[in-house]
Design a protein around this nucleic acid. Structure first.
Length: 447
RNA sequence: GCCGGGGUAGCUCAGCUUGGUAGAGCGCGGGGCUGUUAACCCCGUGGUCGUGGGUUCAAGUCCCACCCCCGGCGCCA
């Protein structure tokens, strides 16, 4: 059936990336070898047109019935069959993209079974695409997102490394909560109770600053929130940083520089992919100009009251409030100084105004929501223990974390960036599930 | 967890109000077509109508229970 050799070595032929066939120095009439997957086929009486896709692009291939030994192989081709093609590149206005390959030889590596994803499923943005996610990731839509995501991760590493941060790794198996017990995934750790998947690497980063001062990590975080929103995953990628000696003000500068750096790199290197996704690049550029806006929690309350919301001091913002607030700004906005009860216990209270914390959330524009949470951490042992108790938690669960405040404790600050949410915003996606190849949420752990 | 929507062919959906032998498009198979662009034209293929029970001469359609999925809220990054 297939004429790819089952035994022996793959013949060493140089293959050209399909994307490169569209560059200006590839002349009409050039002999080319390409390989990839059949993307579309149109069979006529005397000709077969098929679009061939590889990771770099798509080009039309043409087979004439007169081509002996080729026609018989091409006629039974199916969508997603894998082939290698030798042919001649021709400029032709009739071809998509203005160029095509006239096939002189073809080897079918695998005749694909009928591909289950149809145009109907694509256009309806069907749930089915999540069931066959292992196949749907081949689409130009998912491929564009994955390339942008790749560049986002690259930019994060670049920014931190250029700015003197050490990359570190924290464990995924942990024994204590960061936020609260209800959102932990319990695991069977050799039959031992009280072992969970991590919700955040923050506490470990706080330990590591005493060795390396400026640290960051990119790692998954796991949260068992029974959330049904378009902005939540139960397994998400978290870029976290922690810096010794830094104040809230210092860490906000890092946060906005990081976000702006990532967007600039994506705009510079992934314009084609952004356009495939229909993302307005000019808006993105405008949205990433520094500095970002900074408002206090109190100012945010004023804005909301002016817009007719019934909010009282001490309330956290709901989705409606957050949307209304963000709509006032054309760039990301930091909301600084949340009341103590709105934030986790480890946030340091403002010594000059103890009812608020030295914390800040970064809200993305266009309703993409909170992408960063961070601030100063409590570095005094007694202050920390008191606050743990005030929050109804047991200091015994946080022994090693409290221990950090016993040996040369210093002021420090840090933050956590939701990478998938950032990708969602940059790509302009409707759902966070599309920001990651294999999403995990309350309902889905397959494929 | 709460509120709303949904489950019918491999995929996308109509049919349900007003019960009477299950439909379309896409896909797939066959045929046609002198360059196709989500190709097009003709023919064919394809179903425990989410599960269980009830009403009825008769249930995809009406009633009850349950399961699963989607969206919004809450929660967060």
């Amino acid at each position: 059936m297939n004429d790819y050799p089952k035994r022996g070595r793959v013949v060493a032929i140089e293959f050209t990336e399909i994307g490169k066939l569209f560059s200006s120095d590839v002349r009409d009439g050039t002999a080319v070898s390409i390989r990839g997957w059949v993307y579309r086929i149109r069979k006529l009486k005397d000709k077969v047109f098929f679009l061939l896709r590889d990771s770099s692009g798509v080009i039309q291939c043409v087979v004439d019935k007169n081509e002996e030994g080729i026609w018989e192989k091409v006629e039974p081709l199916t969508i997603e069959s894998s082939v290698t093609v030798k042919g001649v590149l021709k400029y032709d206005k009739r071809a998509p993209g203005g160029r095509e390959v006239h096939v002189k030889d073809i080897m079918v590596v695998h005749y694909a079974e009928p591909f289950p994803i149809t145009e109907d499923a694509v256009r309806s943005e069907s749930e089915y695409l999540l069931d066959v996610r292992h196949l749907w990731i081949r689409s130009s839509y998912m491929t564009s997102i994955l390339k942008i995501r790749h560049t986002v991760f690259e930019a994060i590493h670049e920014y931190f490394r250029k700015n003197g941060f050490y990359e570190v790794q924290a464990p995924m198996f942990i024994t204590a909560a960061v936020e609260g017990g209800a959102t932990l995934f319990q695991v069977d750790y050799f039959g031992r109770k009280g072992v969970y998947l991590t919700q955040s690497s923050q506490f470990y980063l706080e330990a590591l600053i005493y060795a390396l001062e400026k640290v960051y990590t990119i790692a998954p975080s796991f949260r068992a929130e029974k959330s049904r929103s378009r902005r939540h995953l139960s397994e998400f990628w978290h870029a976290e940083a922690e810096v010794a000696w830094y104040s809230l003000k210092d860490i906000l500068r890092i946060e906005e520089e990081l976000v702006a750096y990532i967007i600039k790199k994506v705009v510079d290197e992934r314009e084609k992919e952004l356009k495939t996704l229909g993302r307005n690049v000019d808006i993105l550029i405008k949205e990433s100009e520094l500095p970002f806006y900074r408002i206090t929690y109190d100012e945010a309350l004023e804005i909301l009251k002016r817009k007719g919301f019934e909010v009282e001091w001490g309330d956290d913002f709901g989705a409606d409030e957050e949307r209304a607030l963000v709509s006032e700004f054309d760039k990301p906005v930091f909301v600084i100084g949340f009341p103590e009860a709105c934030k986790a216990f480890y946030h340091r209270n403002d010594p000059e105004r103890p009812e608020v914390t030295l914390s800040a959330d970064l809200l993305a524009p266009e309703g993409y929501g909170e992408i960063i949470g961070g601030g100063e951490r409590i570095y005094d042992k007694d202050e920390l223990v008191k606050k743990i108790k005030r929050f109804g938690l047991d200091p015994k669960d946080y022994e090693w974390y409290i221990d950090l405040r016993r040996y040369g404790s210093v002021p420090h600050s840090g933050f956590g960036l939701g990478v998938d949410r950032l990708v969602m915003w940059i790509c302009g996606l409707k759902h966070i599930r599309d920001a990651i190849p294999f999403p995990r949420d309350i309902r889905r752990v397959y494929p």
